[in-house]
Simulated assay, not measured.
Amino acid sequence: MKKIATALALSVTATAAFAHTGTGVHTHGFLSGFLHPLTGLDHLLAMLAVGAWSVRQQGARWLPLAFVGMLLVGVATGAAGLVVPGLETGIALTVALMGVLLAVAARLPAAPDVAMVGAFALLHGNAHGHELPHMASAIGLLLSSSLLVYGGSVLGRVSPALAVKAAGAVIAVTGVMLAATA
């Protein structure tokens, strides 16, 4: 329970996401890409939630890989200039949905799991790709994102089910609040 409380405390100290289009120009180095997922509440919570949720799913080993792989595809689409309509709202809703899935301990078949997590990652990656289109920043982003998903899976394994459900509820409410302000 202490680990979950610490993770939640750290997550609420993150600022609103600045990985989205129209929020300014960032440097394009490895460190900038690495820090991006750690400084945006929506990205931080989504990646931790994907990790925590994945350990209880049939496709557990594929979900983190699907997320990181599709995150890379999303970065490429953003760097290429593809604009996804409603991106901000879509990203916030991924946080809300992941929170709900955690809160209700939903178990889905492997194929829909992978497709859903992949679609979520595509949105998050696209947002990052608009602001961090260079290879060094993309590598930093992928490394940091992988660590967050892995960290979420560790929390999902070691935390009591009730703590994971409670964290899911907090993440869901946060996602709804983010969507309302998107």
Rank of each mutant, 00 (worst) to 15 (best):
Q58W: 00
H20W: 14
A66G: 00
L108C: 09
V117S: 05
I139D: 08
Y150H: 13
V55N: 03
V12I: 11
M177H: 10
L65P: 02
A121H: 08
P133M: 08
L82C: 01
L8P: 00
M70R: 05
V158D: 12
L71I: 03
A80K: 04
L87C: 12
A169M: 03
A179Q: 09
G78M: 08
A166K: 00
M98K: 01
H124I: 08
T181D: 08
G90Q: 03
G99D: 01
S153N: 02
A115Y: 02
L71N: 02
S137R: 12
G24V: 14
A16R: 10
A19P: 00
I91N: 08
A80F: 05
Y150A: 15
I91Q: 10
S144Y: 03
F34E: 01
A60I: 01
A167F: 14
S145C: 13
A163T: 08
A121Q: 11
V104M: 13
A49C: 10
T13N: 07
Q58E: 15
G156I: 08
V25T: 14
L87I: 15
L10D: 05
G118Q: 06
A136N: 06
D113G: 07
L147N: 05
P112Q: 05
I171A: 06
T89H: 09
V73T: 15
R61T: 07
L63Y: 09
N126M: 04
V158A: 07
S146Y: 11
L102M: 14
D113I: 00
S144D: 04
L142A: 06
A179T: 09
A119M: 10
G59M: 04
A161W: 05
A166S: 09
L31F: 14
G125P: 02
F30I: 06
G29V: 10
R56P: 00
V176T: 13
G81V: 13
P85N: 07
G175A: 01
H124A: 02
H28Q: 15
V149Q: 05
G125Y: 01
L147R: 02
I4W: 09
G152N: 07
A166N: 05
G156L: 12
V158S: 10
G156F: 10
T6D: 09
V173Q: 01
T174I: 04
K165R: 14
G86W: 13
R107V: 03
R107D: 04
S153Q: 15
T21F: 14
L71G: 00
P64M: 07
S32Q: 06
M70C: 09
L178A: 15
G156C: 08
P109L: 13
F67E: 02
M47L: 09
T23P: 01
A106Y: 08
T39H: 00
A167I: 11
L178Y: 12
T21K: 11
Y150L: 15
T77Q: 11
A46G: 10
K3Q: 14
I171S: 07
T21E: 13
A7C: 12
A66I: 04
A5Q: 13
S145Y: 12
H36I: 00
V95F: 09
F30T: 11
L48P: 02
A14W: 06
